[in-house]
Design a protein around this nucleic acid. Structure first.
Lengths: 341, 341
DNA sequence: ACCAATCCTGAAAACGTTTTGATTCGCGGA
DNA sequence: TCCGCGAATCAAAACGTTTTCAGGATTGGT
């Protein structure tokens, strides 16, 4: 902010037109003669004109930034999502406002309120808020959900059930019949979906007269600390394989298993979820369901920015349903055939 | 954005005063009678008034958001920095605009230009840009650097030299005399500082007539991929310990060492830098120099938001020098005594 | 030639705030 | 009684843009 800031008036003077024409020419609007538009563009470039976002926002009624609400930036999955979002947002010439809620529902409410004042478009990753609150928000702002689905609200979700299906299929193929599931927070929509997928997969297996028992190890905060608790439970329950809600948990679990002297994969197989960048670098490399986090973030932005249907035709346009992105099991070293005996 | 939005005019009407008075009362300004101020505040609260940021920004000449420029959100160190920044920014009632540069200098230039148009205060983490460009930017906007120092520009840096000193001290105490250094990008200021610290530490040791050789393994992109190249070099050079530019590199190095059948720490000790959250969870847990990333982010915000000295007194105020945050070696399992023979 | 239609452009209003000069009011001193 | 002064308030200007409305010029049809 200083003296040298060039406004639309300067461009207008330079080009010998009115500010209205400059505005139109630069907006690529119709109804401006090609020659004039060119002259304006040239003048703007020469002066290095940059429209003042605040002024534009004021008159258009808010607009050139989108909010990103993330549970925990230190969770690699979400930082990947954030990266994907931020990239796409900036590519669209907008700016990304980011907010971390620390996996806390109260903090989330607070953040949402604050953000709603600044921004009229936002992307919510794995929101913990109640359906009603989310719907109320959706009524005032344009929002897109990630890893949560709600009727009438556009969303991008991973194919959680299919991921679980792939994972248990893999484990069953290796001969495991007693499998633990270490879940995420009870409020997590993703966890609910994965549990549902789990029972479907298991039922299908049983329908073939095959044996399998799923041991619910409980719900854990999605950090490494939760994983160590899960590890002890897994050992106590005598399972030969553990399906884990996400890679963060798996990380802690793997560590604890090592401490307890339980070899992975010889004595215990472990399957994670997300395929965060470190997963392949662990020893043993983690078998996990790969979720394209960056792509999900980008997809959410696309959905958010997709042209809202013209007033009249609203009813005709297909409702923006949840975009379900495919996931794919990455088989690595943390899973092996069930130990004999 | 809709009908129900309440403006300063509504508050003024409700309180029976002019909008000017409302503005002053809410700003906590002087020259407004206590009774009036109270009445205004009550009215504002009753109506749920939220000042329009765009309008305010327009008249005050830009203002209520700060930009955060990060080389790579997927690098856990930076996502921690981002988390710390974002927290503090939001606590101050501002909003954080985030931008990822993909560790690319051209991308960084582009981002900087784009951001400078939106924001007049920004925090640059490990910028790759040339000194001159940074100074030019600092002249126009208020900026704070992280992990880079430049005369006249406020900055928060880690005590890189001390970190290296601690690390080599540890390695020397364990009997290592042939130590490899796997560096970061040549353009990295942090790497330059660490290399400088390295020669100082080594010289001090030699002054005591002790033997030590540092083998420069080269410069690597700061991702796990760089680490595998470094691992092969380390083996080829016959070092018994490797000091690594950052934990990301160490991750790749550890993995490659495992593949090559080189036991850590029995055959090779490894020391990382940063202490990203996964470092303690690896097998073996990584010995590394802990850098308080979140705190650095928060400190940068504090520096950025510190009141700029009143016009006149400019010369008297101590220049905001670099805040150097202390670092601390975390000794874990990836380092051990030098192997015999 | 004239009228209508089309195309382009400009003047001015509007957006919601902060801030700058007035202006009013009450009060103490002369 | 009058004057001046400080305190509290207000009306209006300004910020830089988009957008509406109206006007002027050019064209085409008759």
């Amino acid at each position: 902010m200083a003296e040298g800031v060039v406004t639309i008036h300067d461009v207008a003077r330079e080009a010998g037109v009115s500010i209205a024409t400059v505005s139109r020419a630069l907006a690529g609007s119709t109804t401006v003669a090609a020659a004039t538009a060119d002259r304006v563009r040239r003048a703007a470039a020469a002066l290095g004109y940059e429209p003042n976002r605040a002024a534009r926002a004021l008159v258009t009624g808010r607009g050139q930034s989108v909010g990103l609400v993330i549970p925990d930036l230190e969770n690699p999955f979400y930082s990947s999502v954030a990266k994907g979002m931020q990239n796409r947002v900036r590519a669209a010439g907008l700016t990304a406002i980011i907010a971390d809620t620390d996996e806390d529902v109260d903090r989330e409410r607070e953040v949402l309120g604050q953000l709603a004042a600044d921004v009229d478009r936002m992307i919510l990753a794995s929101p913990r808020a109640a359906d009603a609150d989310l719907l109320a928000l959706a009524a005032r702002s344009r929002i897109v959900l990630i890893n949560r689905s709600l009727p009438g609200v556009p969303a991008v979700t991973a194919d959680n059930a299919d991921g679980i299906r792939q994972a248990v299929g893999h484990l069953l193929a290796l001969g495991h019949t007693r499998i633990g599931y270490a879940g995420g927070p009870a409020t997590s929509w993703s966890d609910a979906e994965r549990r549902a997928g789990l029972t479907v997969a298991v039922d299908a297996w049983r329908a073939q007269d095959r044996d399998v028992t799923i041991v619910d190890l409980g719900a854990f905060r999605p950090g490494p600390a939760g994983g160590v608790a899960a590890a002890d439970l897994a050992i106590a329950e005598g399972v030969t394989a553990v399906l884990v809600f996400n890679d963060q948990l798996a990380l802690g679990l793997l560590g604890r298993l090592g401490e307890r002297g339980v070899g992975v994969p010889e004595a215990m197989s472990v399957v994670g979820f997300d395929d965060v960048p470190v997963a392949r670098l662990l020893a043993p490399a983690l078998t996990t369901v790969a979720v394209p986090a960056q792509r999900m973030g980008a997809a959410a932005v696309d959905l958010l920015l997709a042209e809202v249907p013209p007033e009249g035709a609203a009813a005709r346009v297909p409702e923006p349903g949840p975009r379900v992105v495919p996931v794919e099991l990455q088989v690595r070293r943390s899973t092996a055939q069930v130990p004999r005996g």
